[in-house]
Design a protein around this nucleic acid. Structure first.
Length: 498
DNA sequence: GCGATCAGTT
DNA sequence: CACAACTGATCGC
């Protein structure tokens, strides 16, 4: 199956390309694969997260036998080094990364009174109390470091294999590993913190390829040197280092791209970045009736417990609730929460339906303007008094905050109706019914959590994979523990049967 | 003051 | 409840 991948002459990324039938590198002592098609249906989802992960961690620190997770995270530039992996980096997952506070970025100052409330106390206590559960040496290091006592130097973070595109000198969303040996092109799938982490104005390790919208954000928000930024238009094929590269719309946040690589030997790789699969992708000329050899898949919600409605349905729901509420209380302020970029359609739809402008503060307006979407730009306004529709940082959407916020608006409004568009909401796990969503109300502040997801649901993933039928799949999310990997593999195998 | 890192928060 | 994606504290330099 996996015949040789021709390595381009200039290609210094020493990637072995042998993958096992699950898309994991051969020789990495992949998962204990005996429990093949076991599904045990839904529901036993709990326990999966923490416990198993801790088990995996314990494994890693103690064992001589290499677990997949250890190998996986410890893997260096070469897949063949997986076996000899050091146990570093098990925490690769998502790190706190650069970027100044978004609140600051959005120009919102935290009221003094919230700075040292019970929250602060709880946090400090939590910090002290923590740090016991997961023994192991690394832990000790960390404690020492906090005390400022003789600490070891931090081992450098190593780029995990799934961020490298074999047979090419490229990586995807790998900016937190310094210079990566042999990497001549650093691709960025989209402008979210956990993907661009490591990028700053000091970046100098090589060219960054991304959509032009993302490119603008890199300059505006992170002051990345333009010398290194290589904007690519969507649906346009580029020849980069002898590889044909095309970015497709990922249906995630603005500027998010799915990246299609065609190697000179004809092999094709598709990296989804973060994406929400949809029917439209099924008809893309690069995907329809074309073989994909390896699919790097955003497996965030690859579990049947993650069911949520189409975005359109959620938007309809939000618009309807808004209308109802305004009918009863015409002087209601409607608030939509959003952190960096993404979920714009929620407030755009309200704006269009109510025929009111959208208030956002200066820094958010600047970012939204940079999208170059006239229908959005044209509706932005700079005075909170002149619109009953405000966009605020997600973290601000709490009863105390909104109550205060209402006061600052000088009686122009008498109540607040707020929406937090989050990916998956627990209330949703019981069913797929939007009507079941109950808001949380305190006084004149009502907050709805709505399942507006910019990642694929389980069924959307299934349909996408069954449509694409790639030769191999490499999951890029939820791979930190064996149980979840096994489960995902089992589903994928099932989908690709016959 | 900046960047990295970790835990915590919603 | 558990998600993704962020904030805040604290370290080194």
């Amino acid at each position: 199956m996996d015949s040789e991948i021709a390595i381009a002459p200039h290609d210094p990324l020493p990637l072995s390309h042998e993958l096992d039938e699950n898309g994991f590198p051969i020789g990495s002592s992949s998962t204990d694969d005996d429990d093949d098609g076991d599904y045990e249906g839904y529901g036993d989802g709990d326990g999966e997260g923490r416990d198993v992960e801790d088990a995996a961690i314990a494994d890693e620190s103690s064992d001589a036998v290499s677990t997949f997770a250890a190998d996986f995270y410890g893997s260096g530039t070469d897949w063949s080094s997986l076996v000899a992996a050091e146990e570093e980096g098990r925490k690769e997952k998502k790190g706190g990364l650069v970027q100044r506070s978004l609140l600051q970025m959005w120009g919102i100052k935290k009221p003094k009174e919230y700075e040292e409330g019970s929250g602060g106390m709880a946090r400090n206590l939590g910090r002290k109390r923590r740090r016991s559960a997961m023994g192991g040496e690394e832990h000790v290091d960390r404690v020492d470091r906090r005390k400022g006592q003789e600490m070891k130097l931090d081992r450098p973070r190593v780029c995990p294999f799934y961020k490298k595109i074999p047979g090419t000198p490229f990586t995807v969303d790998a900016f937190r590993y310094g210079q990566i040996e042999g990497c001549l092109g650093y691709f960025l799938s989209h402008f979210h913190h956990d993907h661009y982490g490591g990028l700053s104005k000091r970046w100098s390790h090589g060219p960054i390829y991304c959509s032009s919208l993302t490119a603008r954000l890199l300059k505006m928000c992170l002051s990345v040197n333009s010398l290194y930024i290589c904007p690519l238009e969507l649906d346009t094929e580029y020849d980069i280092e002898g590889v044909k590269v095309t970015m497709l719309d990922a249906n995630h946040c603005p500027g998010a791209a799915v990246i299609h690589f065609r190697l000179s030997d004809g092999r094709t790789y598709l990296h989804t970045g973060d994406f929400r699969a949809c029917k439209l992708m099924h008809s893309h000329p690069l995907l329809l009736n074309h073989r994909i050899n390896v699919l790097y898949l955003d497996t965030t919600y690859l579990n049947p417990k993650y069911r949520f409605p189409p975005k359109e349905d959620v938007v309809d729901f939000v618009v309807k609730k808004t209308h109802n509420c305004l009918k009863k209380q015409p002087r209601t302020l409607v608030v939509v929460g959003a952190y960096s970029i993404g979920k714009e359609n929620v407030y755009l739809a309200i704006s269009q339906s109510l025929e009111v402008p959208i208030y956002a503060n200066a820094s958010r307006r600047r970012i939204l303007q940079s999208f170059g979407w006239p229908e959005l730009s044209g509706r932005l306004c700079s005075s909170g008094q002149s619109s009953p529709l405000h966009v605020l940082p997600l973290s601000f959407l709490r009863h105390e905050n909104l109550k205060e916020y209402l006061k600052t608006l000088n009686k122009r409004f008498t109540a607040i109706l707020a929406f937090r568009p989050t990916g998956w909401t627990f209330s949703e796990s019981t069913g797929n019914q939007l009507d079941l969503i109950k808001p949380s109300t305190k006084g004149n502040v009502t907050i709805y959590g709505v399942p507006y997801s910019e990642h694929s649901s389980f069924t959307e993933l299934r349909d996408f994979v069954k449509f694409l039928r790639p030769e191999k799949i490499i999951p890029t999310v939820n791979i930190g523990n064996a149980a979840s990997r096994d489960k995902m593999q089992a589903y994928i195998r099932e989908w690709l049967k016959v």
